[in-house]
Computed example of a mutant assay.
Amino acid sequence: MSDHIDQVSELLREVAALEILPRFRELTEGDIEEKSKGDFVTIADRNAELWLVPRLIEIVPGSRVLGEEATAASPELLSIVEDASPYWTVDPVDGTGNFVAGRETFGVMVSLVEAGQVRQAWIYLPVVDALAVAEEGAGAFWHANGAVERISTGRSPQDVSELRGAFNVRFMEETWRDRVELFADRVPRKSGYLCSAWDYTDLARGRQDLVTYHRMMPWDHAPGSLILKEAGGVLRNLNDGEEYRPSTLGAPHLAARDQESWERFAEAIRRSA
């Protein structure tokens, strides 16, 4: 793997130690804002993103950064996804609602996109001090407890009653939402993290079988898409079966541990009515 992997990995650990963990379960009322109903931002989100941006640009001179909080303030930044030049995606605190509530299920996510493709990806889970990294064509790796292991999704169970998944339907159009919810009723074990960082790392490590999404903001999905792919999994558009691209900002997507499972789950969802 390239030097970028280690450089960015250290940045994520450092920003968590400086800007995020000291505020975990220590937020005051003035540290929290609501961007829209149920969509929170904290001082930790803003400070962590501001800390990361110049350091990432220094690693790849000429690159730009598509950060969640900067884009919330200036939505025109999303036009970066149409550019072939390199850019970083940054989700400084993924799962902010969990962070605000004092739950441990939040993470820091970064990816490097070039020519419209995710080339490198990082997901750091600060409370458990675990890091997933991937580079296109070089595999995905899990760093935890002083050890590093290559990760693989493995295969999903054939029996629906043995599946574990997450079903995010909030932004889906009614037809897809109804189909997904009907299928979800058959899946007894649901993770419910409300955090892409935990969803994707669990999928990549074979700890859950499928996740559905619709709102496909790059900072939420670009890192996980590559880690999942390099571990053997897939993230595809339910409408046309096309592989996820950072430029696709909204469409029903299904993530699964392998292609065969994706086909099986997609067909079952489409037939749910």
Rank of each mutant, 00 (worst) to 15 (best):
M1S: 03
Q7I: 06
Q7K: 02
E10S: 12
V15F: 05
A17M: 02
A17R: 13
A17S: 09
L18R: 15
I20V: 11
I20R: 06
R23N: 14
T28E: 13
E29Q: 11
F40V: 11
I43E: 14
R46K: 15
R46M: 14
E49T: 13
L50W: 08
L50I: 07
V53Q: 14
R55F: 09
E58V: 05
G62V: 05
S63F: 03
R64K: 09
T71N: 04
T71M: 08
S74P: 00
P75Q: 12
S79N: 09
T89M: 10
P92E: 10
V93W: 11
G95P: 02
T96I: 06
V100N: 04
T105A: 11
V108K: 03
A115M: 06
G116A: 04
Q117N: 08
Q117F: 03
W122K: 04
Y124Q: 00
Y124E: 03
L125S: 00
P126H: 05
P126M: 04
V127L: 07
D129M: 03
A130R: 07
V133D: 01
E136P: 04
G137M: 01
N145E: 15
N145Q: 15
N145G: 14
V148A: 09
R150N: 10
S152G: 12
T153V: 11
Q158M: 14
D159F: 07
S161D: 13
E162K: 15
A166R: 09
M172Q: 13
E174F: 14
R177A: 13
V180E: 08
E181D: 06
L182Q: 12
W198Y: 14
W198D: 07
L203E: 02
R205G: 03
R205S: 05
D209N: 13
Y213I: 13
M217T: 15
W219T: 07
P223F: 12
S225L: 07
S225N: 05
K229F: 06
G233P: 01
V234D: 08
N239R: 12
D240F: 02
G241I: 07
Y244L: 07
P246R: 03
P246L: 03
S247P: 00
S247R: 03
P252I: 10
E263T: 04
A266S: 14
E267Q: 08
E267L: 12
A268E: 13
R271K: 15
S272P: 02
